[in-house]
């Protein structure tokens, strides 16, 4: 990994973190439902620098974000980590078909749904084992899908407009 790539990923992490922290300030009845703009950074990392880079960005963002917001190694951290890792891996798989079969929009949407599903799974299987959470499915999956589509459209825009820059870095 050359210096250019490292600094590029560093910038992605910083931006992801900033967006993550900003979104955390928005009051919401469903606190885990966020616009998910920070995931845009993970998506860009996966598409330009590979799945390992994507995982690095995702995990670093979750870790530092949780250190800053509080709850490091706590339940919220576990949820974010599970969601982040799951969505990155799904996006990595989908990335194989990117630009040929589908655009980053599909990659982002699939990653977002994986993110939400993984969080619910961790919640149900590990954190709140006794409770039946199936009623939460629509409340988590639908906002996830919507946010994944929004982020994906933004990704299409960004990646195509600045493709020269991204090619130079990756």
């Amino acid at each position: 990994m050359n210096a250019r790539k490292v600094s590029f990923l560093g910038v992605l992490v910083a931006l992801a973190l900033a967006l993550h922290l900003l979104e955390a300030q928005i009051p919401s009845p469903l606190p885990w439902v966020r616009p998910g703009l920070a995931n845009l950074m993970t998506l860009i990392a996966v598409l330009t620098a590979g799945w390992r880079a994507g995982l690095l960005v995702a995990v670093t963002r979750v870790a530092i974000g949780s250190l800053l917001l509080g709850g490091f190694l706590g339940p919220a951290f576990a949820l974010s980590l599970a969601g982040g890792v799951a969505s990155t891996l799904v996006m990595a798989l989908m990335a194989r078909g990117a630009w040929r079969l589908w655009s980053p929009l599909a990659v982002s949407a699939a990653g977002a749904v994986a993110h939400g599903a993984a969080q619910l799974l961790v919640l149900a299987a590990v954190l709140l084992r006794a409770t039946d959470l199936s009623w939460l499915l629509p409340w988590v999956l639908v906002p996830s899908l919507v946010s994944g589509i929004a982020t994906g459209l933004l990704a299409n825009l960004v990646l195509l407009r600045w493709q020269g820059y991204f090619r130079a870095v990756a």
Binding site: M94, G97, R100, L101, W102, S103, L105, A106, A109, A110, V113, P138, L141, V142, L145, I149, L153, N156, L157, V158, L159, L160, R161
Partner: peptide
Amino acid sequence: EGGVRLLLGDAAVLALLGAAV
């Protein structure tokens, strides 16, 4: 148009995800 270019695959993937959700 401009920067947002969508492919056939996108529609397929979105339809699949939507149905699953």
